[in-house]
Simulated assay, not measured.
Amino acid sequence: MIDFNNGSLFKLAQCDPAEIVPQISGLLLDGEQVLVAAKTIRDFVVFTDKRIIAGNVQGITGKKRDFSSLPYSKIQAFSVETAGTFDLDAELELWFSGLGKVRFEFKGRFDITYLGKLIAHHVL
């Protein structure tokens, strides 16, 4: 399981989902669609129409990978923080039943309000 308390792990920038899909195609269910993708240099998070998949690439070669699947159905609460004038990072905090708080930080011009609506659509 990925250590979601390590904030440096998830300073994410939005990317084209097509960049990530080849890495997770074996994990996706039939018909499951990737809606939003974000990545660091090696790690990534994708938001599908069914769950959140976080990928942690490990080791020097990057062949070892840890994937965490976080179903929307286990989210009990969430918080969205938009970027400001001096604090340019947006944040998404999710509280999962049985796991606790998961925090993602997004840098740059990430559309965090769309992500908030996506989460609300699946949770509420």
Rank of each mutant, 00 (worst) to 15 (best):
I60G: 01
L29Q: 12
I20K: 04
K50L: 12
L88I: 13
F78D: 02
V80Y: 10
R65C: 10
D43G: 00
E93V: 12
L94N: 01
D49P: 00
D16S: 06
K101A: 10
T113R: 08
T85R: 15
Q76L: 14
N6Y: 00
S25P: 01
K39H: 06
V80E: 06
A13T: 13
L35K: 15
G98V: 07
F96A: 10
S68Y: 15
A38P: 03
G59T: 00
G7Y: 08
L27G: 02
A77C: 04
P71F: 08
L29T: 06
V80R: 07
S73M: 13
W95N: 10
V21P: 03
P17E: 11
I53N: 01
E105C: 11
F106E: 03
D87V: 01
D16P: 01
L92Y: 03
F104R: 01
S73P: 09
L99G: 02
E91N: 12
F4E: 01
V57N: 02
D16F: 03
E81P: 04
Q23C: 03
N5H: 06
G84H: 05
I119W: 12
E81S: 10
L94Y: 02
G59N: 00
V102K: 00
A83L: 10
H121D: 09
K74C: 11
M1E: 13
F86G: 07
L118I: 09
M1A: 04
H122A: 07
R65W: 03
A18D: 09
K50A: 02
R51T: 07
D30Q: 13
S97K: 06
G59K: 00
R65V: 12
S25C: 06
L99W: 04
Y114C: 03
P22H: 07
F110Y: 15
T61K: 15
R109Q: 07
W95E: 12
V21E: 09
P22L: 10
I52H: 00
E32L: 13
G84N: 07
W95R: 04
V102F: 01
Y72F: 15
I53C: 02
S8G: 06
F96G: 05
Y114N: 06
D3L: 12
I53F: 06
T113E: 12
I52R: 00
A90R: 15
